[in-house]
Design a protein around this nucleic acid. Structure first.
Length: 299
DNA sequence: TGTGCTAATCCCAGGAGACA
DNA sequence: TGTCTCCTGGGATTAGCACA
């Protein structure tokens, strides 16, 4: 009870320039004598309090203590609000909404900074699918916050369904889709799971076998040099994916040379360009790309 | 300089909870 | 059940400051 009052007196002092002992005794429903004892306790605990005698006197905190420890500058508040708004736009959470509300209350005077970064259709999903994804995001965040594992039914790209127990590590918004980076007990390694392909999941009871990030093996990418040739009219689109130094322009085409993790399937990316791309190297990729195109023609 | 206001301090006492 | 500790409150007094 007393500890709680001490803390509340400190908060009260932080929110008021100067208060009298009588005022504090009225607010906290204790005698002035008790308030003086509390002030003495706070002071001996290192809180820089000082009192002013006489008319207009009272108890107040050192200004530096107020500014350095317990307040944010307007610029810092704006950064916090922008960050929270960003998270709230991408992943709807009640907590983020509540925090934005509270920090807005802290802003002095009229708010001048409108939210300057907007996420309109951040993913490629249809609205109804996006709502389903938001529910999964929220459930996974809950699991991560309490250190729970989850059991998922996952449909791989080739259509095979597997039941897996995973330890969620991180949520990623990548190429217009949400992914869960998690340690998979079935594969005994870290894997990426696309949220739209997680068809069902359930929380598992807490155990003591939760691995820290440091305990997990980070897989090193197996980089291969890939050479592609694009039609010149694809230049604008190419800036979405490649660095200027990776592209070289000739009279009729654009050559692109870049490093890519060979364990990842690049064919869907290449097919996005239709007939406007040719695979130059490596030969294995060139052959698989041609096989894929042949299959599409046959179907 | 006197008055009023407020902080600060001292002394005493009572209530509640822990403990032997 | 008695003792101890902690917390609290009340009253009296002192001291500093502002103001008429």
């Amino acid at each position: 009870m007393r500890i709680e009052r001490l803390f509340n007196i400190l908060l009260y002092l932080l929110n008021h320039q100067k208060v009298t002992a009588a005022q504090l005794s009225e607010v906290f429903q204790v005698s002035k004598r008790t308030i003086y004892r509390d002030i003495d306790t706070l002071s001996s605990s290192g809180v820089p309090l000082f009192t002013v005698l006489g008319v207009n006197g009272g108890i107040q905190l050192m200004e530096n203590y107020r500014l350095n420890r317990f307040t944010f500058s307007e610029a810092e508040k704006n950064i916090l609000i922008q960050s929270l708004n960003t998270q709230h736009t991408l992943i709807e959470t009640d907590k983020a909404t509540e925090l934005v509300y509270k920090i807005n209350l802290l802003q002095e005077g009229e708010q001048t900074s409108a939210f300057q970064v907007n996420f309109t259709e951040a993913t490629l999903h249809r609205g109804s699918i996006e709502r389903d994804v938001q529910n999964k995001l929220s459930a996974i965040q809950t699991a991560m916050s309490v250190g729970e594992k989850i059991q998922i039914n996952y449909i791989a790209g080739d259509g095979t369904t597997t039941k897996r127990i995973v330890q969620p590590l991180e949520l990623l918004l990548k190429d217009g889709s949400w992914y869960l980076s998690a340690y998979c007990e079935l594969r005994k390694s870290q894997r990426l799971f696309k949220l739209t392909r997680i068809r069902s999941f359930e929380h598992l009871p807490l155990k003591n076998d939760y691995l820290s990030k440091d305990d997990l093996m980070v897989e090193t990418p197996n980089l291969t040099t890939i050479e592609l040739q694009f039609e010149k009219n694809q230049l604008g689109k190419l800036y979405d994916y490649f660095l200027e130094k990776e592209m070289s322009l000739c009279d009729t085409c654009i050559n692109v040379r870049f490093k890519y993790d060979s364990r990842k399937n690049i064919l869907p990316f290449l097919l996005m360009f239709g007939s406007n791309v040719k695979v130059i190297a490596p030969i294995a990729l060139k052959n698989s790309y041609q096989d894929e195109v042949k299959k599409m023609n046959e179907s």
